[in-house]
Amino acid sequence: MIKPLIKGLGVTLKHLFAPAVTIQYPEERWEPYPRYRARHIMYQREDGRPKCVVCMLCATVCPSRCIKIVGIQDEKGDQYPRRYEIDLGRCIFCGFCVEACPVNAIGMTTHYELDGPTRESLILGLEEMMRPPRG
């Protein structure tokens, strides 16, 4: 009976002196690895329009069906999205959309601090997506 008790206390003692695995979050911030998948980003063409060509492949491949796209065409025949929304409340950050994109228009950043007071505020619109994430 004594033996397991000492063993258990030993584990506790070990962790008392081992370096901490947690961080003091608001003061300290975790730096994710570059390959980490968090908030999406829409890359831009040279003229500042989104690079997306509205092929719907991301919306098709998306397993949580959280991407909604409405496309238009300019007078030269180039297609671009008028509306491109990702519902981050439903997104599972699998990165399939990035993989499916034939023109490398959509990417994922390491910005993981995603929050909002309402469900609607978690919907990522086109303009917001084209700005680099804050912070």
């Binding site: 509205v54 719907m56 919306a59 098709t60 409405v70 496309g71 238009i72 065409q73 297609q79």
Partner: peptide
């Protein structure tokens, strides 16, 4: 129906 949907949608 241009740009409205893909056939599988």
């Amino acid at each position: 129906s241009r740009f409205m949907a893909r056939r599988w949608d």
